[in-house]
């Protein structure tokens, strides 16, 4: 693996993760108000997050993805501050934890 001399980023560098389903349609690239991503020069490959720091986490890209291949990655500073406690057992959970409880699948209110 090549080793580059690269500057480090001052903010979160992940912000989005793409899963294997991504076909590189770039809809997420184009909907982003901040233009955080660029299309991958390799056709069909996932986009490249270039301006991660400028993401304001609206989630518009996630909603735009026609196949649900995109996840918003909460910055660590907020993963460690968004915490909940199960009332019955006193267990603590948080976004990003190891061994999380099963997801809750209740859909949001409203019909669209």
């Amino acid at each position: 693996m090549p080793k580059f001399a690269l500057p480090s980023q001052s903010g979160p560098c992940r912000v989005l993760s793409f899963d294997d389903k991504c076909v590189g349609c770039n809809k997420c690239v184009n909907v982003c108000p901040m233009d955080v991503m660029i299309p991958n020069p390799e056709k069909g490959e996932e986009p490249i997050v270039v301006f991660a720091e400028e993401c304001w986490f609206c989630g518009g890209c996630v909603q735009e993805c026609p196949i649900g291949a995109l996840t918003l990655v909460t910055p660590a500073k907020q993963r460690i501050s968004t915490i909940w406690k199960r009332k019955e057992t006193g267990e603590e959970f948080r976004v990003g934890m190891r061994n999380p409880p099963p997801p809750v699948t209740t859909p949001p209110s409203g019909n669209r």
Partner: peptide
């Protein structure tokens, strides 16, 4: 889930990590 910046970053994210308003205290 409809407020600005909640659908994906809050509602979907917390649900995915198991937050359940019927059981949990935020």
């Amino acid at each position: 889930s409809h407020e600005g910046k909640t659908r994906v970053p809050i509602y979907e994210t917390l649900s995915k990590w198991g937050f359940d308003p019927d059981k949990d205290m935020l």
